[in-house]
Deep mutational scan, measured.
Amino acid sequence: PEDLERKVRELQKNGVSPEQIEKILRRDGVDEREVQELVKKVS
C-alpha cells in the first residue's frame, strides 16, 4: 500500500537500516512478501 511505502521511505530517510525496517514491518503485521517488496524498493 501507498502509506506503507511512504513509511518505509521516511524510516530510510531517518537512517534506519533495511534490516530494522524489515523488523518494524513484520512487527506491524505486514505480510512477508510485502515486506520483501518494500525493502527492495528502498535498498
Rank of each mutant, 00 (worst) to 15 (best):
D28T: 05
K7N: 03
E10A: 08
I24L: 07
R6T: 11
L38T: 04
K23Y: 11
K7R: 13
I24A: 04
D3L: 07
G15T: 00
V39D: 02
V16F: 15
G29Y: 02
V16A: 12
R6I: 07
D31G: 10
Q20F: 05
R9H: 06
K7P: 00
P18R: 14
E10N: 08
E10D: 11
R26G: 04
V30M: 09
L25M: 03
I24R: 02
E5R: 09
E32I: 07
L25W: 00
L25D: 00
E2G: 13
E2Y: 13
E37P: 01
V35H: 01
E19V: 06
E2T: 13
R6W: 11
R27L: 13
I24F: 04
R9V: 05
S17V: 04
E10C: 12
L25G: 00
V8F: 06
P18W: 15
E22I: 15
S43F: 15
V35A: 12
V42Y: 12
E10I: 08
D28K: 06
V8T: 01
N14G: 07
Q36P: 01
S43N: 12
K23V: 12
G15N: 04
V35E: 01
I21E: 01
S43D: 07
E5M: 11
R6H: 09
Q12K: 12
R26W: 04
K40N: 13
E34Y: 14
G29F: 02
E2P: 09
K40E: 09
I24T: 03
S17T: 12
K41M: 13
E32Q: 06
K7C: 08
K41Y: 09
E32V: 06
L4G: 01
V8W: 06
L4V: 05
R6S: 11
L25F: 02
P1I: 14
V16Q: 04
V8A: 04
E19L: 08
K13R: 11
V30H: 13
E37V: 07
D31A: 10
L11C: 04
Q36Y: 08
R33L: 10
V35Q: 02
K41A: 07
R26L: 14
S43W: 15
K13P: 00
P18E: 05
V42I: 15
E22H: 07
L38Q: 03
K23D: 13
R26Y: 05
D31T: 11
Q20R: 05
Q36I: 10
V8K: 01
E34M: 15
V39T: 04
D31Q: 06
E34I: 15
D31N: 09
I21N: 00
L38M: 10
V39Y: 04
K40A: 13
G29D: 02
S43Q: 13
D28W: 15
V30Q: 03
K13V: 06
G15L: 02
G15I: 00
P18C: 11
L11W: 11
K7E: 03
L38I: 13
R27T: 09
D31H: 06
D3F: 08
R9M: 09
D31W: 03
L11T: 00
R6P: 02
V30E: 03
Q20H: 06
P18Q: 10
V16N: 08
R33G: 07
P1R: 15
P1C: 11
V39R: 02
R27S: 11
D31S: 14
R26E: 04
P18V: 15
K23S: 12
G29N: 04
L11E: 00
L38Y: 07
L11I: 01
V8D: 00
D31M: 05
L25R: 00
D3V: 05
N14Y: 09
E34R: 14
E34N: 06
R27I: 08
V39K: 03
L11K: 00
